[in-house]
Design a protein around this nucleic acid. Sequence first.
DNA 1: GCCAACGTTGGC
DNA 2: GCCAACGTTGGC
Length: 151
Amino acid sequence: MPAASALAERRFWLVKSEPDAFSWQQQVANGTEPWTGVRNAQAASFLRAMRRGDRAFFYHSNVGKEIVGVVEVAREAYPDPTEAVPEGRAPRWVCTDMRAVGPMPRPVPLSAIKAEPALAEIGLIRQSRLSVMPISPEHWALLCRMGGWEG
DNA sequence: GCCAACGTTGGC
DNA sequence: GCCAACGTTGGC
């Protein structure tokens, strides 16, 4: 089907990274980068649900605590090469490839997200430890407005 | 540095 | 299968 249908089906996500481990600046420098290291069953199931062309906010956890950019799913889930698979066992974890799309003109801090009543139900707040989560189209649009993102 | 949330592990 | 102990994440 044409692009309109693919666009309508595009889903939105938020992925977290500690900038000390892997930062937005590194993502930009590398262009496309495997999103590895997810070791949580719920987060992994969200990675598996990602489709090529889906977009995600890139959030800096611990240091910064703000949405700093937008990435796009460039390759759907495949076995995470950083997993140490025990002898005779099947690989368990997956990664996706993420491509940097662009920086948020105004990074959106966690404090601003918490201060916005319309975002009270967002996974980032309700389940603070989850590192990969879906974002509803409405929340995506609102966060884009808050960050000055014209996408 | 502390603590809440929560996932995992292991004894029973 | 239950649950205490422990480890990790991530905000404060």
